[in-house]
């Protein structure tokens, strides 16, 4: 529809977005793998999702293709549903355990 937009956006190189998103994503992954508090892990997961959102939006804008942004909408909606369920689970555990440290949850062994 409008060829102008991508050009405006391209003043920031695509790589920057990719690097930024990858960095965010990596922070999220590292957080998930190293942190022991369920809420923090959960937030790291959200960080990963947001990294994806950034990346998709960037690609979408660069290609003047709305699909990527629509995808972002769906990710947000689904993430909301995930948040709902996830928080419910964490609240449930907290009420049983008074704690959200996943290390305490070792009744099921690896």
């Amino acid at each position: 529809m409008d060829q102008n937009i991508p050009q405006v956006i391209q003043t920031v190189p695509l790589q920057y977005y990719v690097f930024f998103a990858t960095a965010l994503f990596s922070i999220g992954v590292v957080g998930v793998l190293t942190r022991r508090n369920a809420i923090i892990i959960f937030m790291c997961v959200e960080l990963m999702l947001n990294a994806v959102n950034v990346l998709l939006t960037a690609f979408s804008a660069y290609r003047a293709d709305p699909n990527g942004q629509i995808f972002v909408f769906f990710i947000m909606a689904v993430a909301a549903a995930e948040v709902a369920v996830g928080l419910a689970i964490i609240v449930m555990i907290y009420r049983n355990l008074q704690n959200t440290d996943v290390n305490l949850l070792n009744r099921l062994k690896f």
Partner: peptide
């Protein structure tokens, strides 16, 4: 801990708000 109703409200808000978005 406070009444779980508040959490429920919060969770519902998240869901419905996204739908509104």
């Amino acid at each position: 801990p406070i009444s779980v109703k508040y959490f429920l409200t919060a969770i519902l808000f998240v869901l419905f708000d996204v739908e509104v978005i």
